[in-house]
Write a protein that binds this DNA or RNA. Structure first.
Lengths: 154, 154
DNA sequence: TGTATTTATTAATCTACATGAATGTACGGG
DNA sequence: CCCGTACATTCATGTAGATTAATAAATACA
């Protein structure tokens, strides 16, 4: 459990790594993402101040996600095996976010997902390039650009 | 914390209900699902024996999901506010499942998601109608039918 | 400060999957 | 045992969003 500085662009976890850790973001902005067979990135989650980033896989199995910094950041690094993840209110909050995300992915159009995103994370919209928002929403940057033009021109 | 019998088809929680509970499935099979603006159902999760079904929204806010029984079932009903949800290993397992589900929804085709589903939940495939699997995968029953024909005929 | 590289926009085409409709099949209750 | 309803399949058509490509704009950085 120690504080670590991470430079923008620096990757702190890769798919396949063992003993992945939990990171509590103090300042800055991280993201976790997967890369599919075609080499395409899919952002799983943004983690600004006070969020936690972690790859939740069973301990000792290789991790699924990459994690890197979108801004210079300071994080607290927590070992997973120690049951420091004992704050189950945080876990429940996390589950709530994921539940909402799954429902949105299954039942909402790209426009609806975008509008939900800017309402839910208004600050993040300002801080990351559009292509990353597209990646989070599960669409291409081109589709996001077009969709934004539609919203603006109505 | 008491045992409850639920008949097939019986709805035990509706969207908008307050004080939703946590259900531990003893025998049988439940599902949780959302209904979108167009009235379309989207299955969020199946819950066979030993699984937990719950709508994880912050306590006292109205819930998002419907829960009903796909088979006659026996469940243990747990009040949420009591911090009986203290088993955080279960919460972490749940997060793991959700993480995988999000990544699949974002990066895999319908065929890939179906193949992943039958590998991961081989027993559930036998126990529910296809249209429910389609709903879980985020596709229509017609699309699932076509896709199965493709897989069979190759 | 100028040049290179990433990012955003726009448009044309393509494709996975949705929608709607018709037909067949299985199931469950009287 | 029969009938009605739910479920599965197939096909024709529609559409959201992907892909490719070309250009413009913003950013980094030497």
């Amino acid at each position: 459990m120690k504080e670590v500085k991470i430079k923008k662009g620096q990757i702190i976890q890769r798919k396949g790594d063992l003993k992945s850790k939990v990171y509590q973001v103090e300042t800055g902005l991280l993201r976790s993402y997967s890369i599919d067979q075609k080499g395409k990135e899919h952002i799983y989650m943004f983690a600004p101040e006070n969020w936690i980033v972690a790859d939740t896989v069973s301990p000792e199995s290789p991790c699924e996600l990459f994690i890197d910094a979108l801004e210079d950041s300071i994080v607290i690094q927590i070992e997973k095996d120690i049951t420091t993840i004992s704050d189950n209110q945080k876990l429940i909050n996390r589950i709530e976010v994921l539940q909402k995300r799954i429902i949105m992915l299954m039942s909402a159009s790209a426009i609806e997902r975008y509008e939900h995103f800017i309402q839910t994370y208004p600050d993040i919209v300002q801080r990351v390039p559009q292509k990353m928002i597209a990646s989070y929403l599960g669409i291409t940057p081109q589709a996001l650009s077009t969709l934004r033009a539609e919203i603006a021109g109505k």
